[in-house]
Every structure is written in structure tokens, then in C-alpha cells.
Amino acid sequence: MDDLLTVSGKKSKKTAKQWIQSYDGQKAITSIVFLLIPVALLILFTFVPAANMVVYSFQKRSQLGTDIEWVGLDNYKTIFSDSSYLMTFKNSIYYLIGSFIQQALALLVASVLCSRLRCKNFFKGVLFFPYLMNGVAVSLIFLNFFKNGDGVVSPQGTLNSILSVFGVEPYTWLGAETANFCLVFVSLWRYIGFDILMYIGAIQSINTDVYEAAELDGANSWQRFRYIVFPSIKSIIALQCILAVNGAISVFETPYIITGGKNGTTTFVIKTIETAFTYDKIGLASAMAMVLLSITIVVTIIQKTVFKEET
């Protein structure tokens, strides 16, 4: 664009003025003026940090950038050999399985909500609302829900209170054995509403004629689901399952607030943030961010190539 300006500037002042007033000139000037700030912000807060991340991942360095030391692939080796980092991958498997269950449940709820029913909007609204709730509020609610209090200074949590009615002894739900299951449940509770919404949209986009014809022919609910609904939304289900991989590795907020990553509940992102901001190991944290980025890119490539026709 700058070349254009200088070329026309050389010819004569008059033509430069004419060029500015012409639509080509206007286009160039508008492009530059309108894009200046957004592109500057994009470079400053996305591309510069991304480039830094690549470089830092081969270094040992602190937040202030002092004592920089090139360590080659050591940071990556640490991530894939040190057990405290490997554990986070194991934990993400809990969330991955959890999100498959979440998909199945959401699909079930969505197909029920698409059948003849009263109070549809009420059910949909209630089930969707947790998705909009503040993550800190959700986390605190479940911190109290799963709590094991002594009943004297700190009262019993909701779950233990309910269970005590049936004579069950109080249990430390957020202890090492069950904490991950509780956290996966919280994640399901919080996010399922969105999947329900997606599946309702997908089911409603199916041509109702086919559906009604099948109904007239005497197909029952299961048959209609199996032979009409399922084939039509198969690709969306597969897509959601692929994206679940990304979601499972990116879990952060709820475990960070509920357990702080204790009792074996650290996730990959909690570990990354801890490594960077608690232990001040920017090099290692950058390498972890690079690993997450690679997973995201692989998932996106699969999404774009396999689901190209459908989405």
C-alpha cells in the first residue's frame, strides 16, 4: 500500500490528490486506517506472545527474563517424563470419558425435549442456565456440596447431609479417591446445557416430513431415533467428540477453585499456570503451552478435513 502512495506521489501533487479521492485510493486509505488498531492489537497480544512462546520453550528463564539459558528439548523431555506432569494427562482422561457421557446424556435430553411435551421451554431453560453461571459461583456451590464438615465448627456439606438421611456415614468426597469424579460431575453439570442446545438445533433441522411419515408408518420412538435422527446428526456427534479431546486437556477453572489441584486433581492447564506464575519457570510453562497448542492444531486439522462437507 505504501508503494502505491509513493508512486502516485512522484507523478505530481495533483494526481496524488485525485488518487486519494478516487475509490482505489479511498480503499487503500480506509483499509489502513480501519485495520491499524485491530492488527496492532492482534500482533501485540497474539502473534508476539506466540512467537515468544516458541523461543522460550527451548530456554530456561524467569518472568523477568534474567538468567536465560538455552536448554534445547529439555523442557519437552520434562513434560513427557516427569510423573507430576504426566499425571495431568491421566487426569484429562477422566474429563474425556466424562464428556462422552455428557454427550450421550445431552443427546438423550435433546431428543426428549424435541418430542411432544408440555413446559418444554421451562425444562430447556433450567437445564441450560448453569452454562451461563459464573464459574467461581459454580465452583463454590460444589465446594460446599461435596464438603465433609465436622458438624460442629463447619457444617456438613449438602451431599453428606442428604445421605445421612439414609444412614450413610459422612465421606470426604474431595479426597484423593473420589475428587476427580466429583470434579468431572461439576463439569458435566455446568456444560451439558450447551450440548443440549446444540443437539436440539441439530434435531430440529431434520425435515419433519420424514419424521411424520415414519410416525404414520408406526415407527416407535427408538426406531425413529435410530433410523432418522441419528443418521442425520451423526457428524455433529462425531465433531463434538473430537472437540471433547481439546476440552479435556484445557480444563482449568473448576478444579483450580474447588481443590486447587490438590489430592491428585491437577490438570494440564493448572500445571502450566502454576509452573509459570508460582514457580516462575517460564521456559517450561511455554513448552507446556506449545504442547497444548499442538493438540489444538491436530484437533482442528481433523475437524477441518474429516468434517469439511458437513460443517
Binding site: 512462546m53 482449568f252 497448542l293
Partner: peptide, 12 residues
Amino acid sequence: LLPSISMQVTVF
């Protein structure tokens, strides 16, 4: 594509 939470390591 860039995962935003992890990016904070260098955005900071």
C-alpha cells in the same frame, strides 16, 4: 486456534 489460557504465560 491459540488456546487463550496457556497464552497468558507469555502475554503476561
